[in-house]
Amino acid sequence: MAGAAPAWTKRLVIQLVRGLPGTRITHRGTVRALGLRRRHQTVFRDATPSICGMINQVKRLVSVETEEMYNARLEEDANRKAVRPPHVIRHSPQSKQ
């Protein structure tokens, strides 16, 4: 039984990008049920139909990526912030006339 994994078994990376004050009580409960408590907190969840429905309900409060997209973004950020060798500029001596 080595079949392909179902499409809904993908891992999602969910991040709370907006604050909860001023939102509906049901949306606060949904965000809490996703495991998010603070802004910019990130959680990993399987892409089940129930999780996708919860994300759809609070889609203006969260950002969602697949795990592959998240890892690629982290790698790109690390490469951009990597220490690079310094630029060495050598000038030829000026001849005085």
Rank of each mutant, 00 (worst) to 15 (best):
R38C: 12
G29C: 14
V64C: 01
Y70K: 00
H87S: 09
R45G: 03
I25S: 07
I14P: 04
E75K: 11
P93Q: 05
E65C: 08
M69S: 09
I25G: 01
H87Y: 14
R18N: 07
G3T: 06
S92W: 15
R60G: 03
Q15A: 08
E75R: 12
R80A: 12
S50D: 13
L34T: 06
P49S: 03
A33I: 12
V64W: 07
S95T: 14
N71M: 14
E75T: 07
R32D: 10
L61S: 01
Y70D: 07
P21N: 06
N71V: 11
A33F: 11
H91E: 10
A4G: 07
S95Q: 14
G53D: 04
R28L: 06
P21K: 04
I51H: 03
D46L: 13
L20N: 09
Y70Q: 02
R45N: 04
R32W: 13
W8M: 03
K96P: 09
R32M: 09
A33Q: 13
V83N: 05
W8I: 08
T9D: 08
W8H: 09
V13G: 07
S95R: 15
P21E: 04
R18D: 05
C52K: 07
L61E: 03
I25H: 01
A5K: 14
R28E: 07
N79R: 15
T48C: 01
T66R: 04
I55K: 00
V62L: 00
I51N: 02
R39W: 12
P49D: 01
L61C: 05
S63W: 13
G3W: 10
V13F: 05
S95Y: 15
R45Y: 04
H40S: 10
C52E: 12
H91K: 15
A5Q: 12
K96R: 15
L34I: 07
P93M: 05
A33C: 11
D46Y: 15
R60W: 10
I14N: 00
Q15M: 10
I89N: 13
V13Q: 05
P21D: 06
H87P: 08
R90F: 12
A78L: 13
V64A: 00
R38K: 14
R84F: 00
R39S: 11
P86L: 03
G53K: 02
R45H: 08
A7S: 11
R39T: 10
Q97H: 15
A72Q: 15
G53W: 03
